[in-house]
Amino acid sequence: MLGASVTANIDDNTAIYYNPGALGNIKETRLGFNANVYFLDVYFIENGAGEGINLSANVLDALPLLFSGSIQFKKAQNLTLSYLYMSRNKSRVRLEASTNYAVDFFENGTASEQYFASFTLDKELREEWIGIGFGFSLGKHLSIGFSPIVTVYNNNYLEVTDISLFSNLSQASSLLISQYDLRESRIAAIGVLLNVGATIKLEQNEIGISLTTPRVSLSSLSRSSSNRNRTVFNNIPGEEVN
């Protein structure tokens, strides 16, 4: 529940989120947009893909925070319709690293094999709210309203490791060992919640009250999946690859 000092004085489109009861006080059609134009995230993981192989990424993105509007009807001036799109959370980071070098795999005194390895980590998180609000003016002193909101939550994770060892004893290199490992998970959760509110105008003060219900998950519309794909190739007799 939000305090009266916050919810009573809302007189713009954001009332659909803070106190839909204040929507009844809006007497004109409006359109609003509020955003952080850019944000910069810097990631660095020392030895993240192995000894001496660091992971780093710089993420520059635009994040719209709130897009909202309200519609006033001439034939029903006591009714205000409002709509909302809110990006509650948005983040994505993709880290990649690769290396290759000569190695003495058979310990015969010559570094005649070539080792190649690559690593990719991709994580994405998004949470978006979409809602519609209804405000009713019940005279000069009282207005009430409600706003059902649909929440959409997405969490995706991808990790890929690719390792190969080639012989280089002749002009035609051959694959000795390879290992490919993919781990992937996806979560898409949809839910609903309801905001209800009211504002009361007194002679010198204005009182507002707002209540938000807990988010209810719609299991029939939500999805989750995970995948593991691991393949190993070994062309060296007697050598095991873990």
Score class of each variant (00 low, 15 high):
residue 191 G to P: 05
residue 221 L to G: 07
residue 242 N to L: 13
residue 23 L to Y: 07
residue 201 K to S: 08
residue 70 S to M: 00
residue 153 Y to Q: 08
residue 78 N to W: 10
residue 143 S to N: 05
residue 153 Y to M: 08
residue 210 S to L: 01
residue 109 G to E: 08
residue 79 L to N: 00
residue 72 Q to H: 14
residue 237 P to S: 15
residue 75 K to S: 10
residue 106 F to A: 13
residue 65 L to Q: 12
residue 141 H to A: 07
residue 102 A to K: 13
residue 223 R to I: 04
residue 89 N to F: 10
residue 64 P to F: 06
residue 167 S to F: 05
residue 239 E to S: 07
residue 146 F to A: 14
residue 174 S to Y: 07
residue 32 G to P: 03
residue 73 F to P: 00
residue 173 S to M: 14
residue 28 E to P: 02
residue 74 K to L: 06
residue 45 I to G: 01
residue 140 K to R: 11
residue 236 I to W: 06
residue 110 T to G: 02
residue 212 T to M: 13
residue 122 D to G: 06
residue 227 N to L: 15
residue 200 I to V: 10
residue 172 A to S: 14
residue 93 V to Y: 09
residue 88 R to S: 12
residue 223 R to H: 14
residue 32 G to Q: 10
residue 94 R to D: 13
residue 89 N to D: 10
residue 184 E to F: 05
residue 164 S to I: 03
residue 190 I to E: 12
residue 233 F to H: 08
residue 142 L to C: 01
residue 47 N to S: 09
residue 209 I to Y: 08
residue 190 I to N: 14
residue 126 R to K: 14
residue 14 T to P: 02
residue 116 F to R: 10
residue 192 V to L: 15
residue 215 R to T: 09
residue 147 S to D: 05
residue 181 D to N: 12
residue 173 S to K: 15
residue 164 S to T: 12
residue 201 K to D: 08
residue 61 D to H: 05
residue 143 S to E: 03
residue 97 A to Y: 04
residue 34 N to G: 08
residue 107 E to Y: 08
residue 129 W to H: 10
residue 126 R to L: 11
residue 238 G to L: 05
residue 9 N to T: 11
residue 7 T to L: 02
residue 158 L to I: 01
residue 215 R to M: 07
residue 76 A to W: 05
residue 233 F to W: 04
